[in-house]
Nucleic acid binder design. Structure first.
Length: 157
DNA sequence: GCCAACGTTGGC
DNA sequence: GCCAACGTTGGC
């Protein structure tokens, strides 16, 4: 099956790439996504083995800091029906889940941040969803965009 | 901290 | 079903 590529955003003050690396097996549930477009990707499109660019938003500077691999296909986000969680949604239940998540495992740590400023200044990356619809927190990435950002982050670009 | 862009809600 | 009001995201 063809590997696909995604970008996931997190505010590092909330949950950083280092936080992911500190998890058991460097693996975490990607919970808390409360946007329907992103939900549909998590539920239907994002599969085990797909690769992810981990992006820090609302940071100095905002940018890509590493990669991760999807290790569990979409399943209901149980934090939605947990009133104690950070993002409860009473419309969602075990019987009728509204929100979904996948599990991701940290992979490569970039040697340097590939900043949003740099991404915007790179012609080959000008079609990225990140540039065009900056608010979507889970978004598709083309394979050549993924490979270019990794090479920039690993110091070869 | 500001505010533009975008998504969601709810009155009609 | 329209659209104004409101809330959120996230760069700057």
């Amino acid at each position: 099956m063809k590997t696909r590529y995604w970008l996931m955003k997190s505010e590092p003050s909330d949950y950083s790439f280092d936080d992911l690396k500190l998890e058991v097996d460097s693996t975490a549930e990607w919970d808390g996504v409360r946007n329907y477009q992103a939900r549909n990707l998590l539920r239907d499109e994002i599969k085990v083995g797909d690769r992810v660019i981990f992006y820090h938003s609302n940071s100095k500077p905002p940018g890509a800091v590493g990669t991760a691999v999807v290790v569990k296909n979409g399943y209901p986000d149980h934090t939605a029906w947990d009133p104690e969680s950070d993002h409860p949604d009473p419309r969602s239940s075990l019987e009728n889940p509204v929100w979904f998540m996948v599990d991701i495992k940290a992979d490569q740590t970039f040697q340097r941040v590939v900043s949003l400023r740099e991404i915007k200044a790179t012609a080959a990356l000008s079609d990225m969803v990140l540039v065009k619809n900056s608010r979507l927190s889970v978004q598709p990435v083309a394979s050549d965009e993924f490979n270019l950002i990794v090479s920039m982050g690993m110091g070869n670009g």
